[in-house]
Amino acid sequence: MVKVLGVGNILMKDEGFGVRFVERYKEEIESLFSDKVEVVDGGTQTLPLLHYIENASHLFIIDVVKKSRDDQDPGDIVFFTKDEIMSSLKSRIKITSHSGGIHELLATAEFESTIPDEIELIGIIPEDMSKGLEISETLKNKMQALRDVLIGKLKEVIQ
């Protein structure tokens, strides 16, 4: 099974991009691949997501990604491989029940040996992370492009 996991906090505009993406494309993507793909709204959860991703052959994560180079602009789509994600893990002892997010989810799955073999993070550079339910126009306009990229990748791994 291939899984797509959109994560984020919808109360903070672009922070909620992953969730908004799932809301818009879940039905379309799942029917396009006749249920070989499951698209999940991960919200701000960590451990309750373990059983959604366990032993998936491929996992695609949709999230906003902090700008890390000068030539990156809001709305740019960026990619990270499993190795890149896992080597960036610098998890700390937990301070709150919700902190940690994706890092913690993957580190826990790794320790449990239920981590998917193939993981890719398809991220987008945010523009506005202030309080609010709507994502910025810049990111809204990029949703379709990200969907196309994802569908291309899904076609590759499913065939």
Binding site: G8, V78, S87, I95, G123
Partner: peptide, 13 residues
Amino acid sequence: CLACAIHLFDPKG
């Protein structure tokens, strides 16, 4: 229960 706040992915960890 303090942080449903930010879950941005930071490539530099």
